[in-house]
């Protein structure tokens, strides 16, 4: 029984060994066996989906609650369960016993479970692209206001996706070094669209905020209340402290009054800014952070235990 537990359950998800042995959870690549197993698993998954579609209304909330609980349970166990002595220990040299087995299994499964959210997020992000395409295709089809801009968007999207995929496939087939040497059309297209346009536009978009921040500060940064005055003074000191030339000049001036006098040296710009940073700014931000942390912890527990309204109804 014990051997059965080890051989059947431990390798499940725990794909840690560099050269994993074959077991019921895997199959050699490129063989009909792996394709058959994958096919059966997908069929089973879609079967589950069909069962969910047919599920009675009263079961919806418990079903989604169970999924959430099981997903969270893994990480809670990782935190609460005794840690393995050293997760790098080769499988055959690991200590034996239920607790040790579970702790090693948990440690080995972390990289695997961590991937679940990556993969599911990727599947869900596809939904965003799907919605964007749907909205803009409808706008073009119905010739709504500014429909030519939707055409621009769709053409840019198709071009980027095509060249991105084409270049990626070429690199996989020929090797990155050869592509960088030969520069086929795919490389030009991808480089121009991605590096020459998308990246530059992203940087330009982010940099636009500089102009808005200047205009907003000029208009809104007025000493109308105690809070605004404090905010303005702190911002002024912070900005002065970011200018090396100002800091060096100011501090030099203070040093000329008494370089060896600890009291005088408290008035250097770096000391004043450092005092504000260490004793006012950091605890302020820390308090905000604690607040956010407590909120996240409470929200995490509520979600995990289905106390939040997330499940079906």
């Amino acid at each position: 029984m014990e051997a059965g537990w080890r051989h059947a359950v431990i390798p499940w998800l725990a794909q840690a060994p560099a050269a994993p042995a074959l077991n019921m959870w895997n199959a050699p690549a490129g063989t009909p066996e792996i394709w058959m197993k994958v096919g059966i698993a997908m069929l089973a998954g879609f079967g589950l989906l069909a069962a969910l579609i047919a599920a009675p209304t009263r079961l919806r909330r418990p079903i989604s609650g169970a999924f959430i609980f099981l997903a969270g349970l893994f990480w809670v166990l990782v935190f609460l369960f005794p840690k393995p002595i050293d997760s790098q220990t080769p499988h055959e040299q690991r200590p034996r016993g239920f607790v040790q087995d579970v702790s090693f299994w948990l440690a080995d499964a972390i990289p695997v479970v961590s991937n679940f959210s990556n993969i599911l997020t990727a599947f869900i992000l596809g939904l965003g692209v799907f919605s964007l395409v749907r909205i803009h295709l409808m706008r073009v089809a119905k010739k709504q206001n500014d429909w030519p801009f939707s055409v621009v968007l769709l053409v840019s999207m198709v071009a980027m996706a095509t060249f991105g995929y084409w270049d990626w496939k070429t690199r996989l087939d020929l090797g990155g070094a050869k592509v960088d040497e030969a520069w086929p059309l795919a490389a030009y297209g991808k480089d121009l669209l991605f590096d020459g346009m998308l990246q530059v536009m992203e940087a330009a978009m982010f940099s636009l905020i500089a102009f808005f921040i200047l205009s907003a500060a000029y208009r809104a940064f007025r000493i109308r209340s105690v809070e605004a005055t404090i905010l303005l003074c702190a911002a002024l000191i912070a900005m002065l402290n970011l200018m090396g030339a100002v800091v060096v000049t100011w501090d030099g001036m203070i040093e000329s009054f008494g370089k060896d006098n600890a009291f005088v040296m408290n008035f250097t710009l770096s000391s004043v800014a450092g005092f504000i940073r260490d004793n006012l700014q950091t605890p302020g931000i820390r308090a905000i952070d604690f607040g956010i942390g407590l909120g996240a912890l409470a929200m995490g527990l509520r979600l995990w235990l289905s106390l939040e309204r997330v499940g079906g109804n």
């Binding site: 989906l49 969910l52 579609i53 919806r60 079903i63 989604s64 609650g65 999924f67 959430i68 609980f69 099981l70 997903a71 969270g72 349970l73 893994f74 990480w75 809670v76 990782v78 935190f79 479970v113 679940f116 959210s117 599911l120 997020t121 599947f123 869900i124 942390g293 996240a296 912890l297 929200m299 995490g300 527990l301 979600l303 995990w304 997330v310 499940g311 079906g312 109804n313």
Partner: peptide
């Protein structure tokens, strides 16, 4: 059947919430 769409999102939220104790 839009309630089914909450399952994958719920799994992601569950994975996130389970980590919060350790992260905290």
């Amino acid at each position: 059947h839009n309630w089914i769409s909450r399952i994958p999102i719920g799994i992601i939220l569950g994975l996130w919430s389970g980590q919060q104790v350790q992260v905290w």
